[in-house]
Design a protein around this nucleic acid. Sequence first.
DNA 1: CGCTCAGTTGACGTATCTCAATCTAAGTGG
DNA 2: CCACTTAGATTGAGATACGTCAACTGAGCG
Lengths: 242, 242
Amino acid sequence: MTLRPTQACDQCTLRQLCLPMGLPDTELWQLDEIVQQRRPIEKGSTLFSMGSPFEYLYAVRTGTMKTVLMGDDGTEQITGFALAGELLGLDAIHQGSHPVTAIALESTSVCAVPWSLVEDLSGRLPTFRQHLMGVMSRGLASEENLHALLGQRSAEQRLATFLLSLSQRHHARGLAADRFILPMSRADIANHLGLTQETISRLFTQMRRQGLIELHTRDLYIPDLDALRTTAGVSTSAASSA
Amino acid sequence: MTLRPTQACDQCTLRQLCLPMGLPDTELWQLDEIVQQRRPIEKGSTLFSMGSPFEYLYAVRTGTMKTVLMGDDGTEQITGFALAGELLGLDAIHQGSHPVTAIALESTSVCAVPWSLVEDLSGRLPTFRQHLMGVMSRGLASEENLHALLGQRSAEQRLATFLLSLSQRHHARGLAADRFILPMSRADIANHLGLTQETISRLFTQMRRQGLIELHTRDLYIPDLDALRTTAGVSTSAASSA
DNA sequence: CGCTCAGTTGACGTATCTCAATCTAAGTGG
DNA sequence: CCACTTAGATTGAGATACGTCAACTGAGCG
């Protein structure tokens, strides 16, 4: 047993995906020193709320979060899902407060990085800065893909694309691309894709009948990824998180 | 007549909106020295194409551009419109090539800033870096709003919100909020909002009959902005560009 | 073992799309 | 300066994908 906290960045399996990507070992300790390991956020509870001041960037360690934009009229839009290794809060830099609420879909642990530290490291370490800007740039490109998905695609194509996006992101984490658990409800998927719960449910049974997927509750298996890609409309580059 | 090019950043009316915002005068010349003023891009021609290498960040000086994401199957999605002072190319940093094609809606002039210069200035000037990250962050937040617009709102609400967004952006440039020219076609508006040309046309005549707008060809007048906000669904913070 | 909430399925309604026919504005060449 | 052309815009009639409302079912949990 070592005295080093098991959550240390240099031990983290997500290091290649997460904020410290590209940081030299000699600088990594600066993150380790200051990054706060919060106790897990319970399913359904919020990490930060829309309108709250922006102080930390968060990296998901384990679990899954959703980000929700609440409308004045009570409508809610799920703008994205954050898997392990993905960052939350980059959309808050501009106005200094979070434009969305972050809610845990399951028990989820995060690393909290003070924004002031990120700014400091950005000024001193070009590699770190480039990585950070790359992440933001990728976020912009992803949302453009999502825009095209919502604007041009049928319900079936949206759902297939969404499943492929999850598959791809799991694969990027070294997990199986064809078998994983959906951490979110049908209603969450529907909301995110601009559809209704009922439509998602109908599509799932239709896809089951076509042999495109096997799905028990939230346990998903995709026997033929290429077949799913075909129904998605050949969009290989699926949209990712926000 | 001065020998200084009239396009110099320190003379530019967009300085407070554009990339050099917050740059000290003592540093401004570094942009001026290197920024290329391109000859105007004619209506309908492209500034850069999807897939082309990312070398420059572009700032719109005059005119309007649209950014289009082309699908493998021939579908096109207009992801945003860039007005004077807005930046193009931030979504290309990550993958090193442009994910969208930029097309001029009218004769448009841009400033081309080498990305290497931007990176250099980002490393040396904290204020500049903060501004740049702020712009990207705002882009992320804007696209989240757009997501909610496409996912939750009716055709009428989408169009009203879109007009208010244009109005607001004109106002931010010191122009009239209630009277401006639509630089894009009905088909472009429709595509951007996930609707059809016919629906937009029908909504325009409906809004005309309700007295919400006056519109001759592309000449728009909004007699009562608050009324339009009401039909938009009280979303004061309208979505902006991409 | 029954409560509760997520998920499924059905019947029906409708906002928006599709197809197609004008109509209008802005050029363009004679 | 006026026919002619052409692309954009408007309008109508009919089709449909998806939503709404509502009942039912199954899974997890105390």
